[in-house]
Design a protein around this nucleic acid. Structure first.
Length: 413
RNA sequence: GGAGGGGUGGCGGAGCGGUCAAUCGCACCAGACUGUAAAUUUGGCGCCUUCGGGCUACGCAGGUUCAAAUCCUGCCCCCUCCA
């Protein structure tokens, strides 16, 4: 065996720790208040130290401690309950110590409601492959700038996109950073595997993510005071048996909640199938989060399967590209398109925010064409308000048993 | 009046004998986007088409050549400098 091989073996030697059996979640509560009789849909109340939210609910992505284009006031006006920020980006800039000295994320960014942080695990995937669509379609836009340097048992190594520094993210580091930033809900460190890998790779990565999860729990337990709740992540990619193993693994650990993560397949149908098969195997009393998902039709489908919370960049990202969500019709319109040049109607007068009610499509079309940032802001706030309205209506419909009818109103057919 | 430079697709601007229906940028038309290195990115953009191709095109009119946006002649415009 050569030196290189010995080193490789050493780097991949499993690091096994014993996870705690129980943890203090005194600042948190998850109550299931209603169950649908026709599906697995359920209503709940998730209490955190920064407030209680009704579930199902939607978590908007403010990766760098900012919802792109929107202030906390914009978010509140759009009736947002909860947002998320990202460990990976914030550790690079401004660094966890800055946020800690500022008094934590809530104070730093002036968001006083419930918050979650992602562990940075997703960036192992994103930095290595560029993005979901690119990866699934076999494109790689980041060929020359790929910044994932490698994954070992200890953690993942990245090249900082900010200044080229070599960064290491381990389960311990991720939890430590998340603790110092102080979001209510935090995540175990995991790897999100790509679609185009062998089953063996997914299995190996899953087992490693489980060990990372145990290390996350151990680190989380240190100095823990019940002000944060840790979620475990179900991985296993597109393989039913691996998903089963992973569901069991999360169930056996003292996580407050469960998230469905990892690769969800190459199509919407495949991803519904994976979620559908996982749900009955997930801890029934804990809140279930679906990582990274959030198209309107996905919300309907996945609420029926029992998902409690979603998060997705889509509402704010597509807004910057001109797409405004609609209730009914095609589900969205692109305000840049020629037909809106002289359209005097607002985006949606039934939403009680100025962005949706007061400005004509003609004006917003103009703002986009003229490159005025106000355009992207108005559409972003509109989309956030729209999604929040969607989730409010979904909760009411679950209670009234009218989810099917509601879906028709939103998506037609 | 003298000297020089130039007129190319909606605009700007390459090309300076064939591989040019014409690089590129803008504008325009549409698409993609699912734990955000995204105000990113992809395609289309003369006319017709049975998608093989056909037709009309680089100021206007002639000419040279197997072949011209590219060379020659004349004409019409525009710009700079000198008087």
């Amino acid at each position: 065996m050569g030196r290189r091989d010995r080193l490789k073996r050493k780097l991949n030697q499993p690091i096994v720790v014993e996870a705690p059996k129980t943890l203090d979640y005194s600042g948190f509560k998850f109550e299931i208040t209603f169950r649908d009789t026709k599906s697995r849909a359920r209503l709940g109340r998730l209490t955190t130290p920064h407030g209680t939210i009704e579930t199902p609910n939607y978590i908007f992505c403010g990766t760098k401690a900012s919802i792109k284009n929107l202030s906390p006031q914009h978010m509140r006006d759009a009736k947002t309950d909860i947002i998320l920020a990202n460990t990976y980006h914030l550790m690079i800039q401004p660094g966890p110590e800055v946020i800690e000295r500022a008094g934590g994320l809530h104070k730093f960014m002036q968001w006083h409601g419930p918050m979650m942080t992602d562990s940075g695990g997703f960036q192992i995937f994103a930095m290595g492959h560029g993005g979901v669509a690119d990866e699934i379609k076999g494109r790689n836009r980041n060929t020359n700038t790929r910044s994932l340097m490698g994954i070992t048992e200890e953690g993942a190594k990245f090249k900082s996109y900010w200044n080229g520094d070599t960064l290491k993210l381990t389960p311990e580091a991720s939890i430590d950073i998340q603790r110092r930033m102080g979001a209510d809900i935090i995540y175990q460190f995991d790897e999100c595997t790509p679609y185009h890998v062998e089953r063996d790779y997914t299995a190996t990565a899953m087992e490693r993510s489980h060990r990372w999860g145990d290390r996350s729990l151990v680190e989380f337990e240190k100095g823990h005071n019940g002000r944060q709740a840790l979620y475990g992540i179900v991985s296993g990619g597109i393989y039913d048996d691996l998903r089963t193993i992973s569901c069991d693994w999360t169930k056996d650990r003292p996580f407050f909640g469960t998230a469905i993560g990892d690769c969800l397949g190459g199509s919407t149908e495949e991803f519904y199938e994976i979620v559908g098969k996982c749900m009955p195997q997930i801890h029934p009393d804990r809140p279930v989060h679906l990582l990274g998902i959030g198209a309107i039709r996905d919300v309907f489908s996945c609420v029926r399967m029992g998902i409690d919370t979603f998060d997705c960049v889509s509402p704010t990202r597509i807004a910057r590209h001109g797409w405004a969500l609609t209730r009914g019709g095609e589900g969205r319109i692109n305000i840049r398109n020629a037909p809106f040049r002289d359209d005097q109607e607002p985006l949606d007068p039934s939403l009680d925010i100025s962005a949706s009610r007061d400005f004509s499509r003609s004006y917003i079309h103009h703002l986009f064409k003229a490159g005025e940032l106000l355009g992207t802001q108005l559409v972003a706030q509109h989309n956030v308000a729209m999604i929040n309205r969607l989730l409010r209506e979904v909760r009411a419909a679950v209670k009234n048993g009218t989810l099917d009818a509601l879906e028709k109103e939103w998506l037609g057919g």
